[in-house]
Design a protein around this nucleic acid. Structure first.
Lengths: 176, 176
DNA sequence: ATCAGTAAATTGAATGATCATTCGGTCGCC
DNA sequence: GGCGACCGAATGATCATTCAATTTACTGAT
């Protein structure tokens, strides 16, 4: 369903097609889900949970900036490697399909990311500004980079990725 | 139609409702537009054209950074003052409804913004990195700020706006 | 001024599709 | 023999789009 929805849009993918693709009957889907929207919502939660884990993987112990860089790269790689996930959260996961309520339910999945930046602020590695601003800016820069790649506006070589990370870091890092 | 589409989503707004809201008959709409999608596309172009103009308004002559700040604020104010426009470009203007083709057609409307940053690079005010990266990062930071406000995650006081601008500037400005 | 003539604008009921969802029934397993 | 998983045709709506009919706006001739 993820694939179909990303390619055609939510309302252009009939449940009949979803059923066919999944090799089940339409009725079976309705046996497990209340309605079409609930399937979409579960898809959303799955993806958030997924990248919430990936994001924090393989962090080096020491340097804070190095950790930031790895996190940035983790998320970037996740989206580049899972274009469907990216396109889903970017283009499909919009109100009123995905409500604020559902978004809130997904917050715990990424709580550790928030904690990471809070620690950064305490340790004077990260600007002392509202945490939501930090998160949104950092997250947004990754999204921007992925967009550039998928729209084929930039090739996103190693150098370009490093530039993007550097810009992103300069936006959030502590200033003397 | 903008209003209806933003509130209900494209496929949840029947042309009959659009017609009623506009006090015309359905047929009349089809006299002026090929189909539903074309109306949406014209909406998109209108909005891009609109903020392309607003963005460059009232720029002070002197300081480059000051100009950047005004541009940033211009776009921020535009979106905050036109929530429908914001929600439309953010949530509705997605493929396959708005194709890459349509996006390309709208590029000329914002060519002067590109020129502004190119000049900035020449004058060593802006980082010497691919222009698309600059544009996407700068634009993205405004979007992030507007999102925070609309989601009521941040109040976006004058201070918070200034912080966001500062972060955005640090991301794109020239580094010695 | 008036009016016939005509082209464009407008109308909205009818058409033909497409879908989400339901539910009576089947199947396989314990 | 009973229970849950599974099936998919049938239902009831909803829509985008069409088009024949009607109205309006404009022209120039009288």
């Amino acid at each position: 369903m993820l694939e179909l929805v990303v390619k055609q849009g939510v309302h252009a993918t009939p449940m009949s097609q979803v059923a066919k693709e999944a090799n089940v009957a339409v009725g079976t889907i309705y046996h497990y889900f209340e309605n079409k929207n609930e399937v979409i919502q579960e898809l959303y939660k799955m993806i958030v949970k997924d990248y919430g884990v990936v994001l924090m993987a393989n962090l080096p112990e020491e340097d804070f900036k190095a950790q930031f860089e790895i996190m940035w790269t983790n998320l970037y790689s996740y989206f580049v490697g899972n274009p469907l996930a990216f396109k889903f959260v970017e283009y499909v996961a919009a109100p009123p399909i995905i409500s604020k309520e559902i978004v809130k339910q997904s917050v715990p999945y990424i709580a550790n990311i928030r904690d990471f930046f809070l620690k950064g602020i305490e340790e004077k590695q990260i600007r002392n500004v509202p945490i939501r601003l930090i998160l949104q800016m950092a997250f947004g820069s990754v999204i921007s980079a992925v967009r550039l790649k998928f729209n084929e506006e930039l090739e996103m070589t190693k150098e370009e990725i490093d530039l993007a990370i550097e810009m992103s870091w300069d936006a959030v890092c502590y200033k003397n």
